[in-house]
C-alpha cells in the first residue's frame, strides 16, 4: 500500500516538474506536428500520395518525437543527484523507474495521441483508419517510452549521449513501427485490425514486465 502511494507520488513529482517547466515538456508534441507538416513540402500536396503515406509518416514522427524527449528522462536527475536519492529511497528502484516512465508517457505520449488525428486530417488520411490510429498509438506510445527508457538509462554519463541514444533505441523501435502502421493500413484497406493490435498488446505486456527491471539495473551501474 505504501509502495503504491510512493509510486504515485513519484509520478506526481515528475508531472509537477514537467508542468513547472511549461513549454519544455511540450516540445515533443510541437516537434511531432512540425515533422509531419514538413512531409507535404517534401512529397508534394497531392491528396492521394499524402493519404497513402499518412500512417507511416505519423508513426515515424511519433517515434522520433518520443526518442528526442527521452534524453531528459533520467539525465537531469542524474546530474543533480536526485537519482541517487531515488535509488536510496525505500521504494524499489524498479518501481521508481516505472513511475518516471509513466510520467514521461503522460507528458509526451498522451499529447501525441491527441495530436495524431488532427495531423491525419491534414494528411487526408482515410477516415476508416482514425480509430485504428488512436488505438495503435495508445498501445504503441507507452511501448516507445518503455523501450526508450532502457536506452536513456544506458547513456547516462556518456559522451554525445543524444546521438548515441538514437543509435541504441531506433532499431528497437522497428517492431512497434511495423505493427503500428500495419494496424492503420489494415483499417484503411478493410482488413482485420485486431491481430496487429494484439501483437502490440503482447509487446506492451512483455515490456511492462521486463523494462523496469533492466532499466533499474542500468541505472544502478550508472550510479556506481
Amino acid at each position: 500500500m505504501t509502495a503504491m502511494k510512493a509510486f504515485w507520488r513519484t509520478v506526481g513529482r515528475d508531472l509537477q516538474l514537467a508542468l513547472r517547466q511549461g513549454m519544455d515538456s511540450f516540445t515533443a508534441v510541437v516537434f511531432f506536428v512540425l515533422a509531419v507538416v514538413l512531409f507535404p513540402f517534401g512529397v508534394g500536396p497531392e491528396p492521394a500520395v499524402l493519404a497513402r503515406i499518412a500512417p507511416g509518416v505519423i508513426w515515424v514522427a511519433a517515434l522520433l518525437a518520443s526518442m528526442l524527449s527521452l534524453e531528459r528522462l533520467f539525465q537531469l536527475d542524474y546530474e543533480d543527484g536526485s537519482l541517487e536519492l531515488l535509488a536510496l529511497a525505500p521504494l524499489p528502484l524498479e518501481a521508481a523507474v516505472g513511475a518516471k516512465i509513466t510520467a514521461h508517457w503522460l507528458t509526451t505520449g498522451l499529447p501525441l495521441i491527441v495530436a495524431a488525428p488532427v495531423l491525419a486530417v491534414l494528411l487526408q488520411m482515410d477516415a476508416a483508419g482514425f480509430v485504428a490510429l488512436v488505438a495503435a498509438l495508445a498501445l504503441g506510445t507507452p511501448l516507445l517510452s518503455l523501450i526508450g527508457a532502457i536506452g536513456a538509462a544506458l547513456v547516462l554519463g556518456a559522451r554525445r549521449g543524444g546521438v548515441l541514444l538514437s543509435l541504441l533505441v531506433l532499431p528497437l523501435y522497428i517492431p512497434v513501427l511495423i505493427f503500428g502502421v500495419a494496424a492503420v493500413d489494415a483499417a484503411v484497406f478493410g482488413f482485420a485490425v485486431r491481430p496487429h493490435l494484439m501483437v502490440l498488446s503482447g509487446l506492451l505486456l512483455a515490456a511492462l514486465v521486463l523494462v523496469p527491471w533492466v532499466t533499474a539495473a542500468a541505472l544502478r551501474q550508472a550510479l556506481e
Partner: peptide, 20 residues
C-alpha cells in the same frame, strides 16, 4: 552498459525478425 545493451538486443532479435 554495452553488456546490458547486448542482452537487450539479443532478446529483441527474434522480435525484430518476426516483425520484419
Amino acid at each position: 552498459a554495452a553488456a546490458i545493451m547486448a542482452l537487450v538486443g539479443f532478446v529483441n532479435v527474434p522480435i525484430i525478425k518476426f516483425s520484419v
